[in-house]
Structures are given as structure tokens and as C-alpha cells.
């Protein structure tokens, strides 16, 4: 059994087939890209994996467990974390609080221990704080820990979202367009950062990205979707020369 496997996933919304027969296998430590034109069904794949949508048919396996259709928070607890295409931070909470929310799932104290600040809770709370601070330090946002997340500039919001996802202790990290809205310099930093967190946290990473420089630069294998169908799978160089992919992105050549 592979580390992660999506087996013949189909997602239908009424008459629209958003994803058709999607198959994906990941080994631990993989860094895989998922690309395709707008509306190809990439984010729908993410939503199925993380439990936001229940696939119309097909199964998803993660670490020998069938996780098809489980609740998102349960899937997160099992070790799959994600970021969002349109950033979804807790804008009115501080940076440190944003990250600390992710530790809540592992809190062992009950509500009374928390309210009366009993020793066991305080130990966990302090440990959460230290760990969250360390994560913020890694994404170079620790000096802004007490600021509201909504006040951050775009690029930093993306970094905070990744930090928040890392705080759930994932084994598989799904990044939905991490480089969107970043300038070339920020994008370069992001590419280094993604490789760095993969090694440091022993992650397997699946990412959706439109910026081909990012995808071709860091992904070892690439899946290409178009109209819900997987049209190509391969290494960056194979994908770049694949006629199907070129057709999907640029359209078919017309002969006059």
C-alpha cells in the first residue's frame, strides 16, 4: 500500500463532472505538482482529499486507512493539512493565535482545566505557545506575533497560512497556489522555503500552482488536469514537451 493513494476519484456537481477518474499515488517525501488550466478541477481534488467534498465515487487511502468522506477535522488530525487558494486566515486574531488554533486538536485538558488554569492545561498552553513562536520564527514572522493577521501584507499572509498548516503536524501538506500574488523575488524565496520545510518536517507535499517556474523548479513529478481528466503524468521535462499539455494550455494549432 502506498503512503497516499487516490483511487478513481469522481466528483459530480449535478450534471457537471468536475473531476473524472483521478488517480494519484504518493510516496513519503514526494514533492508533486498538480497543474491545469482554470476550472480543470484541481481545487476540487484538494477538497475531496481534505474532506470538504465527499467524492461521488472512488476511494482515498492515507497511511493504510480509508479516509474517503471523513470530516475535515478528522482528516487533519490524521496528518493531512492544507492552505487555501483564497487565503483564509482568522483575520481578527493575532498571528500567534492563528498558529495556536492548530494545536487545539491535540489539547488533552477539558474546559474546566482550561478555565481554572490547572497545571496540566498550563503546561500544554505554554508548550503550544513556545512551539507556535518557533514556527513563526521559521517563517520570519515572530516579530509580528501579536499583530492581527488581517493587517499583514499578502505575501506574509501566505507564509502565515503555511505556518498554521504546519502546526497541525501534518505528514502530507497540500498547498493551493502558494505563489499566487507574489512578486518574482518572493516566489524564489517561497521555492526555497517549500523545499526547506519538506526536509525539515519530513513532509510529503502536493501543490497546485499556475506559476510554471515554481512547478518546473521544485516538483519532481507533475499531474496535469484538464476538464476533470488527467491528461498527463511525468517529470517536468516530460510535461513540458507533452503535446496534450501544450494543447490544453495553448489550444490546438489551426491549419489554414
Amino acid at each position: 500500500m502506498p503512503f497516499f493513494k487516490a483511487d478513481h476519484l469522481v466528483m459530480r456537481f449535478g450534471g457537471l463532472v468536475a473531476v473524472n477518474d483521478f488517480n494519484l499515488e504518493l510516496q513519503p517525501g514526494d514533492l508533486v505538482g498538480l497543474i491545469g488550466p482554470n476550472g480543470a478541477g484541481k481545487t476540487t481534488v484538494f477538497n475531496m482529499i481534505t474532506g470538504v467534498y465527499r467524492p461521488t465515487s472512488g476511494r482515498i487511502y492515507f497511511q493504510d486507512k480509508d479516509i474517503t468522506g471523513k470530516r475535515p477535522d478528522i482528516i487533519t488530525a490524521l496528518g493531512i493539512a492544507r492552505t487555501f487558494q483564497n487565503i483564509r486566515l482568522f483575520t481578527d486574531l493575532s498571528l500567534i493565535e492563528n498558529v495556536m488554533v492548530s494545536y487545539h486538536v491535540r489539547l488533552k485538558s477539558n474546559i474546566f482545566e482550561a478555565v481554572f488554569k490547572l497545571p496540566r492545561y498550563m503546561r500544554q498552553e505554554n508548550a503550544m505557545y513556545e512551539e507556535a513562536m518557533e514556527l513563526l520564527h521559521k517563517v520570519e514572522l515572530d516579530h509580528l506575533a501579536e499583530e492581527k493577521a488581517g493587517s499583514l501584507p499578502y505575501g506574509e499572509q501566505r507564509r502565515l497560512e503555511i505556518a498554521r498548516a504546519l502546526a497541525t503536524h501534518p505528514k502530507l501538506l497540500l498547498l493551493d497556489e502558494p505563489a499566487a500574488g507574489m512578486n518574482p523575488n518572493e516566489t524564489l524565496q517561497l521555492m526555497d522555503f517549500i523545499k526547506q520545510i519538506r526536509d525539515e518536517f519530513d513532509l510529503t507535499i502536493l501543490l497546485i500552482e499556475h506559476d510554471m517556474k515554481v512547478v518546473m523548479g521544485i516538483c519532481e513529478r507533475i499531474w496535469v488536469l484538464d476538464y476533470g481528466k488527467t491528461i498527463a503524468v511525468g517529470t517536468p521535462s516530460e510535461i513540458q514537451n507533452n503535446p496534450e499539455v501544450i494543447k490544453a494550455y495553448l489550444g490546438e494549432e489551426e491549419y489554414a
Partner: peptide
């Protein structure tokens, strides 16, 4: 006040701010 400022309170506020994200971060909504 103590509840709101605890880990439970952070989870509650996270739900208010963004339910989808809160659930994706492991909060049982």
C-alpha cells in the same frame, strides 16, 4: 473571560472568523 482566552476560546473565535479554515486546522466545529 478565562474560557475565551483559553485554547477553547481560540477555537471558538476561529470558528467565527472562518469556519472552513477552522475545520481544516482540526477544530471540531
Amino acid at each position: 473571560t478565562r474560557l475565551v482566552n483559553s485554547s477553547y476560546g481560540r477555537a471558538l473565535k476561529a470558528i467565527r472568523e472562518n469556519e472552513v479554515a477552522a475545520q481544516a486546522m482540526g477544530v471540531n466545529i
